[in-house]
Each structure stands twice: as C-alpha cells, then as structure tokens.
C-alpha cells in the first residue's frame, strides 16, 4: 500500500491531493480569483498560493484521514507554468518532505508530451488519442511511432483563453471560473448563432471567432436578438465541435479507438457529452474523465507520483527545481 501526496500550483489554482493505491482520498483546491474582466499576474498568484498552502494542506490531510507519518511520498509539479507560483508550491512540497523525512518526486506536468506516457499508465488506456484543453493549451496528442506526438493544436489562442475572454465581454464572474459560468449559462441557451468555424487539418484557430463574437455580442444582446445564454450556447457548440472534429480526424488518421480528455476545460460536461457521442459513432471508447485527469489538481500529481514511486524512482533534493517551460 502506497500513499502519495501531490502539490499542484503551476497556474492560478493551488491543489493538494492524496491518493492511496489509485483511490482519491482527498483533493481540495483553492483558486485565485481576480475581479471580473481581469487576468492574473504571476506575483499575485504566488502570494495567493503562499497564503493558502497551509490551510489546504490541513484540509487534504483531514479529509483523507491520514497523518504525515502515513504518507510514503511527496510529489509536486516542476513545470511548465508560471514561475513564481510554481516555485512557491515547490517550496511547500520540499519543506514538508524534509520535515516529514519522506522521499520527493518532482516532474513535469504529466500531460506534456515528453511525459505523457504517464497518462496512459494512469488511465489504463492502451492507445488513446488525448484532447488536452486548458487555459493555456489546446492540443490533440496521439500515439504514433512508439511515442506521443502532437497531431493538432491551436494556431493562435487556447480554447480556455477564448472562453475566458468571451466571459469578460459578458462581464461574467471569475468565481469559480469564467468557463464554468459560461457552461451554466449555455444550458439555458436556445437560439443558435452561426459563428466563424476554423479548422485547418488537425489544427484549429479561435482568434477570428473571438473577435467576431466580441464585436457582435454587445449589440446582439442590447437589441434583444440573442440573450447572453444564447451566445454562450452558440460559442460552446461551435468551439467544442471544432475540438471534437480535430480529435476525430486524429483518431481516424492513427486508427485509434480510445479517447481521453484532460485539462481544465475537459471538466465541461457538454464537451464530454459531445466527445462521448463521437466516440460511440466510431465504435471507440471515451475514457472516464474524472477529477484525477484534470490537470490543475493535486490528486493528478499524486497519482502520477505514485506510479513513479512504485517503479522505484524518486528525485534527489538537489534536483527539485522548477522550470517555466
């Protein structure tokens, strides 16, 4: 039996998760929320992580009903991500590892292609095509020539970024996240507005769509032609259809019969539903996307670390640095 604790703070969320042999014991997190219409700065984000680290750590231990002595290994994200928040989080991980006298494992985000092998280990998927969608990333990754390769990606902005920026136009709250609020409004949208749809091979582009809807939205809402709900609905339907299309193209291209969604935007239920339908029509399998596979949380990091620990790998303290790339 191995118990691993994982620290994730590469972006605006700080998460600490505890895993016991593949089972999530606890996974609390806290998001740094900026006022509506504002992005977040690395320095303020780092301050947020420093401020909340101990509370969340206590919560993680309490919810998991474990004491530090039960823990076998401490894991954290080395990168990539924003420098200051990464370092703040790593500092906490290093401190507790030394305090509790536990081995430490630091690694690059498991869904970065270099380490994506890990994702396969975790899910038990054999040959999945992975749609990796978050605030900073939009990639379709598939297994080819004995390693993971990026088949498609955004040629301009990431999907999460596109959603966030649209949320600012509608002045939606950043609590808990702009994307979540778009998802809720979209549920009540009815009238579909056709928006620019840009797919190039296995790549997508969102900037044209974003500037179109940024420009039109205020007027359409003011005139009463479309409600904010309709616009959120239309945006989601269009953007997600593009993502599913490139994922499907990559699957057809590689002959893959398994698909996995990871990353923050992957928590969107409508995206999962669309992916499920696509997979079903192709006779393929969609791998369960639960919180362990969303990128910004501690449980994911603990899970990946648990796998490494079992195979006998740990990181010497002198190598527990961070990297932004």
């Amino acid at each position: 039996m191995v118990i691993a604790i994982g620290f994730e703070g590469s972006a605006n969320k700080l998460g600490i998760g505890i895993i016991k042999d593949g089972e999530v014991l606890s996974n609390p997190r806290h998001t740094y929320i900026t006022p509506p219409g504002q992005g977040f700065l690395p320095r303020d984000t780092a301050k947020h992580h420093q401020k909340h680290a101990l509370d969340i750590l206590r919560k993680a231990l309490d919810e998991a009903k474990v004491t530090p002595s039960d823990i076998d290994v401490v894991c954290y994200t080395k990168g990539p991500g924003m420098g200051a928040p990464l370092v703040s989080t790593a500092l906490v991980a290093r401190t507790v590892a030394q305090l509790w006298r536990k081995p430490i494992i630091g690694f690059l985000n498991p869904y970065q292609p270099s380490d994506i092998e890990m994702g396969r280990l975790i899910t038990g998927a054999d040959n999945p095509t992975v749609l990796y969608v978050s605030g900073g990333n939009t990639q379709v990754i598939a297994y080819s020539q004995r390693r993971y390769r990026i088949f498609g990606e955004t040629i301009d902005i990431a999907v999460g970024n596109c959603l966030d920026r649209f949320a600012r136009v509608l002045k939606l709250s950043n609590d808990p996240s702009p994307g979540y609020n778009i998802e809720q409004l979209a549920k009540n949208g009815k009238k579909f507005l056709e928006l620019p749809y840009t797919v190039k091979g296995m790549d997508v582009s969102f900037s044209g769509l974003l500037s179109y809807i940024e420009e039109k939205a205020p007027e359409l809402v003011e005139k009463g032609e479309y409600t904010p709900e309709d616009l959120c609905f239309s945006l989601q339907e269009t953007v997600f259809a593009m993502l599913i299309e490139i994922t499907e193209r990559a699957m057809a291209h590689c002959g893959s019969q398994e698909v996995l969604i990871v990353g923050g935007v992957g928590c969107n239920k409508r995206l999962q539903e669309m992916m499920g339908k696509m997979a079903e029509e192709r006779g393929a399998k969609l791998y369960a996307t639960d919180e362990r596979f969303c990128i910004d949380n501690g449980a994911m990091i603990a899970q990946a670390g648990w796998e490494m620990y079992k195979s006998g790998q740990t990181t010497p303290l002198k190598d527990t640095f961070c990297t932004q790339r």
Binding site: S10, A11, N12, K13, G39, F40, P80, G81, M82, S134, G135, G136, N137, E153, T154, I155, D156, I157, A158, G160, N161, G263, G264, I295, D296, Q324
Partner: peptide, 12 residues
C-alpha cells in the same frame, strides 16, 4: 506560425 506554437502562455 511555427513560432506562435512555442510562445503560447502557460496559464491554466
């Protein structure tokens, strides 16, 4: 376009 791929920010 090749460069754009490398410059994208990492904000989750």
């Amino acid at each position: 376009v090749r460069m754009r791929g490398r410059k994208r920010t990492m904000v989750g």
